[in-house]
């Protein structure tokens, strides 16, 4: 692999990784607060892509506006899922919440199959995304550049919300100690709703950008990105937002580089990520930035 190819793959990896990072934040935020894995998050990602698709194709809304509508709509979907399905099992054994999440995920996927069909739809990405740049021997598509840029902007906004606003402070407080926060008079359910909204909005943005990068969308499009983003969250240290970002880039790079280094391994590109997931769970379940939790006897 020469330098040019390496550089190209690096950009591809970063671009893919930034999408995983967007999605990973949703997993990590919900886990940080509720200590459960929101399996349906990968389907929220899909809902985001489809919402944008319908706003563009059916309602002929201009692209930026369609994206904004889609993000808002998806955020609403995320909040609704929490209200309808997760809140009733909040005080149940943790296994119940997990089973519920598996059920919700399957429900959304099959609702997608039933309503829009299994056949992939062609996503219309805007002009500036498909432009091709040549820098010396390196060829880069607009998507590969725009995706990380937009990701960074969104992440900056999100960091601002979490670390500089009142609701962000409430979120961090809830994730530290939910009961104590409740005692301080904070409406915990509201904070959880905001968390779902924010996580889902980022997932929707991720879904839309993903659709720009891989313009065939289908109801099951979220499954594998979802698992990879989840792996990213684990690698970064689940519960940690900066960790999710770092994890996202690591997973993106691992995936791209595996195939780049040895094309014979392309059949294993998903397997490698699952291997990373399993190895991290077994060797360092707290990830790179996570902290250890010791159970009290």
């Amino acid at each position: 692999m020469n330098a040019a190819v390496f550089f190209q793959q690096l950009i591809n990896g970063m671009s893919l990784g930034s999408l995983y990072a967007l999605l990973a934040i949703g997993y990590t935020m919900v886990y940080g607060i509720l200590r459960f894995i929101n399996f349906a998050h990968s389907d929220i990602f899909m809902v985001g892509a489809y919402s944008a698709f319908f706003f563009i194709v059916i309602f002929r809304v201009p692209w930026p506006l369609a994206a904004a509508f889609a993000v808002c709509l998806t955020a609403l979907v995320g909040v609704t899922i929490d209200r309808v399905a997760y809140r009733p099992v909040r005080d149940a054994p943790r296994i119940s919440a997990l089973i519920t999440a598996v059920g919700v995920s399957s429900f959304i996927e099959n609702l997608g199959l039933v309503t829009v069909g299994a056949r992939p739809k062609a996503f219309e990405s805007p002009q500036f995304m498909s432009r091709v740049f040549h820098i010396g021997p390196v060829t880069i598509t607009g998507v590969a550049i725009w995706v990380p840029i937009m990701t960074f902007v969104l992440l900056a906004v999100m960091m601002y919300v979490v670390y500089r606003t009142k609701i962000g402070m409430a979120m961090r407080s809830v994730s530290t100690d939910i009961e104590a926060t409740r005692l301080m008079g904070v409406d915990v359910d509201k904070v959880i709703s905001y968390t779902f909204a924010l996580g889902s909005a980022l997932a929707a943005a991720g879904g839309i950008l993903w659709a720009c990068k891989y313009p065939k969308i289908s109801p099951l499009m979220g499954v594998y990105p979802g698992w990879k983003a989840f792996t990213a969250a684990v690698v970064g240290g689940i519960g940690s937002i900066p960790g999710a970002m770092i994890g996202g880039f690591i997973i993106g790079l691992i995936e791209v580089m595996t195939v780049a280094i040895s094309p014979g391994l392309s059949g294993y590109r998903d397997g490698v990520i699952f291997l990373v997931l399993v190895v991290f769970l077994l060797v360092r379940p707290t990830g790179i930035l996570g902290e250890t939790l010791k159970e009290k006897v």
């Binding site: 099992v89 149940a92 519920t100 059920g103 429900f107 099959n110 199959l113 039933v114 299994a118």
Partner: peptide
Amino acid sequence: AGMRMLVFSLLLVLLMIFYR
């Protein structure tokens, strides 16, 4: 396609909420 799984998924979620 997917109709049955849709029903079953809904069933699973409802079971978890109302009939654990």
